[in-house]
Design a protein around this nucleic acid. Structure first.
Lengths: 218, 218, 218, 218
DNA sequence: GATGAATGAGTGTTCATTCAT
DNA sequence: CATGAATGAACACTCATTCAT
């Protein structure tokens, strides 16, 4: 029963079977045979749609990352308030979206991270994604904070988001999204509060720049 | 060249070879044959000292975790200042100890996390370790903060530490320990600063308890 | 050279290679690699058709047992005489059929028996087969003998058949089918001869029943 | 704690551990390590007392066979009646002695038979034992039967004894010694009864000789 | 487009054997 | 005598991949 236009359907079918397989047995034991069985297709078809197993895994990660970005994008579009705080909240919430805190997604992320340490193509994907979070956060903080502090705040908030996600994923219990979001909000607010004491003048506020501009310490 | 009393030497030798192998090719591709070759011993010896591959991996993780705990313990012992802030700094620094931010350790941690999602024994090890960090932090925050805030601060700082570590590990660049420590210190200080506005009286300070005690909002 | 519909061909091919391997080196040393080599296929194909080595061995035993049953069935079908004696002769002859007294079959049976002591699935197969011989014999003896004597005759003849087969197999020499059949016939006839002195009335003929019916010895 | 005169003790200790191991996991899985553990000694000692594993197994079989012969010998010594029937009963009973119908012995016999098909030294041991039973039976039958009939009776009774033993061993249930002995006795008596119709004159009684002497059938 | 037969290298693991202590 | 450390080949089994149909 060969059909035309099956490509996107089959691809989606196989990606979802991959997530299911990783959820059940982990990436290491998610064999082509298991994935094909879960998808209800033959082994051979995978190489037809995704060159090889790595291709399928990369596509699966791309799918999850796309879900993440979509979650943020959709929330941003629904936004009426254009304040930095509103935008930051959107980013935080998007990172704890239901699409990211379910079993298959969490297990796949962890496996992906481990693999990215040894597979250049996955590592590239990983860096892009990591940078996007930092960049989005930094961009918003920058609207109210001097560059140095915006960067530090963005680094901190990105790490806090990832850390909350990580500890939630590893706990084995259901993910407590509310608690995670609350902690992230608080950090965001503490950073935003600096705007009232610092201004946005970069040079005055950046201790490293001052130090570098005055190497003699005079 | 069989000798008696080789057990501790061989075990250490094999654990180090495992770290080396994981560093080079990842846990998934760290075969018994590769580890044995790196250790300069035969394949068969591994089952002699560690029942099977899982035993070796569990022992390797135990070794890394022990290094982490030792790093904190040693710093704490060298402490002259008994303040919560000093203790918290020790915990933060210990978590970014050189033994934890090198390639082999970082790759092993990531692989361990991914595996712990599907191996009950590793998961148990993982939960113990996660809880230790939280518990240590909470214990110190509790000395100056009401319980609710101490818990929240501990959860936040634990997540921030893990997140900073994670993003540093995944970056692929050399780990910027100073930057990580600085961001963690700042979070710690922001949380400790609450002690001047909150006191340590639990019930007054806990918003959830207040809300519950006053459900009608009167 | 992958083809469709190869399953029955390959299965038969592999079963015959297994018999050949057992004949050459014994079941203990009949490795997957050897069997595959004898069959002229790759190692991996075995798990494709028979889950694992046990599956192949069970299938091989099933094949031999089927040959045995077929041997009896075919002889029975060719029968014009419906007497118990004729049927018993058929069973005896079937058990010394050429398919059962050749090297591969004899060695496989012996190995199977030894294995059946520790493998529940093989043991079940073994019991079914053992019971079939007894049951078939008993059924025929029952037509002319009281139940108690029919059972005893069937037990004896089954044991004699198996014992003749066993000693023939272990001797190392070519199997002397004629001698074995002659001895079994004689036992059969000695048992059948009882019909003229006993009748077929169960209760009168069964010494155990008589004893039980008359416990006081009156 | 090296002692003198340990040899026979250690050998016996290891043979019993071998029987225990075969009973528990079968000969195929009875590793040196397991046997040594069951005996409470080190792996290496086995090669000290029995060249290698085959040596241990051969010694174990020799031990069981010796038990069998001892069982017959002891019963014969206790005999007051010197009749052929009494001697035959002794042989039958000895073959169903408690030392031969327990789990370890039955499993070891079966494994031994299977191995004897491919190991010349075990095969030799096996033939000697098989022949001894036949020879003992034949010797007694010969006292009252012509040679041809004595041989046939001995072959039949040997087969019946082995077959009863085999089916009992394979059944998985407790061995019903009484039933087996009863069936064997009956066969023995049926054969002995021929003495009243045949006499002991070989030539008159042997149908094959008669046939050969009279090839024309006149 | 889709199947599943077939491959063969690679895996973890077991194990009899050796031998320095 | 006795130990147990060490070896390394052999094992069953898995798996991504290929390809004729």
């Amino acid at each position: 029963m060969p059909k035309v236009g099956m490509q996107p359907i089959r691809r989606q079918q196989l990606i979802e079977a991959t997530l299911q397989a990783v959820d059940q047995v982990g990436l290491g034991d998610a064999s082509i045979a298991l994935i094909a069985r879960l998808a209800g297709v033959s082994n051979g078809i995978i190489s037809h749609y995704f060159r090889d197993k790595n291709g399928l895994i990369a596509a699966t990660m791309g799918y999850i990352m796309n879900m993440l970005n979509e979650g943020v994008r959709a929330r941003r579009q629904a936004l009426t308030d254009d304040s930095p705080r509103a935008h930051l909240k959107v980013i935080i919430e998007g990172n704890f979206d239901a699409s990211q805190v379910n079993g298959p997604a969490m297990k796949t992320w962890l496996a992906f991270w481990a693999s990215s340490m040894h597979q250049p193509d996955l590592h590239r994907l990983q860096r892009i994604n990591d940078h996007r979070l930092y960049s989005n956060l930094c961009c918003q903080f920058r609207r109210v904070l001097p560059l140095y502090h915006a960067r530090k705040a963005a680094r901190g908030l990105a790490a806090l988001i990832d850390g909350l996600w990580l500890r939630g994923a590893l706990s084995g219990d259901a993910f407590d999204t509310d608690q995670a979001v609350r902690i992230a909000y608080e950090y965001m607010d503490l950073q935003l509060a600096k705007q009232h004491t610092l201004g946005t003048d970069d040079q005055a506020a950046d201790p490293t720049r001052t130090a570098l501009a005055n190497p003699a310490g005079a």
